[in-house]
């Protein structure tokens, strides 16, 4: 049935072609401004904070200390992470002791891990970059760092290297060659999950993370 439906639909679409002369679009005229590195960090921070993300810009070497500070302020029980993420080793050596969560590697397929994951407090992930124009993190999940790490735990902590912040989405797509490399899932994330479906009153943490904390490594 569905292949004949396809044939009939395409027959109509092709027939429609001949009756209308194609529109020649103008297009290509709008672009958000290009910024230098400091401006990019500043704008990204500002934009993400507007939508209730917490953004800390720290010298690259000091991120573990900042992370511990962030964690201690919240005292979570558990933190999921990708065992083979670039910072995995650092986490294992630093995140231990009082007031710090138990590290839980996302080491199995979701079918086996799902129930545990839904009870986890923090998910920590790397990012591929950021976009200043709209204040978003670029997250392409990998076998090492699966998709649900940034969605299911109550808090999402993201590590963002300052020199991977792009000015605009268009620039990021171009520079990262999205068109040739689209992964299974590419995400832009601007902050915690939110809704305004009841009386247009903004509330955070409706299905996904209630908090998004970004450590910008400068």
């Amino acid at each position: 049935m569905s292949s004949t439906a396809r044939d009939r639909i395409f027959a109509r679409l092709h027939a429609a072609r001949t009756t209308v002369s194609p529109y020649v679009p103008r297009g290509g005229s709008w672009q958000a401004p290009m910024l230098d590195k400091d401006q990019r960090i500043e704008l990204l921070k500002k934009r993400m904070e507007t939508v209730r993300s917490e953004v800390h810009v720290v010298p690259e070497a000091e991120w573990p200390a900042k992370l511990l500070e962030v964690l201690k302020a919240r005292e979570p029980q558990t933190m999921a992470y990708g065992h083979d993420a670039w910072f995995g080793g650092t986490l294992r050596s630093k995140v231990k002791g009082k007031g710090l969560p138990k590290l839980v590697p996302y080491g199995e397929n979701v079918e086996a891990f799902r129930d545990e994951l839904f009870g986890i407090d923090v998910g920590i992930t790397s990012t591929l970059g950021g976009i200043a124009e709209n204040g978003t993190l670029i997250v392409w999940p990998t076998p090492q760092e699966p998709r649900l790490l940034s969605l299911v735990p109550t808090v999402h902590i993201a590590l963002l290297k300052a020199d991977t912040i792009y000015s605009t989405l268009a620039e990021a797509m171009r520079e990262m060659r999205w068109a040739e490399n689209m992964p299974t899932n590419a995400l832009l994330i601007s902050g915690p999950s939110k809704t305004a479906d009841i009386e247009m009153t903004l509330a955070f943490g409706v299905h996904g993370p209630k908090e998004v904390i970004v450590l910008v490594l400068d």
């Binding site: 999940p141 076998p143 590419a186 902050g191």
Partner: peptide, 24 residues
């Protein structure tokens, strides 16, 4: 739609779970 610069998520899906991936 909502007076936002961007939504919380822009979710781009290009394939089902690939070999080695743990979820999706």
């Amino acid at each position: 739609a909502t007076g936002q610069l961007v939504t919380t998520y822009v979710n781009c899906i290009t394939s089902p779970r690939k070999e080695g991936e743990r979820d999706g």
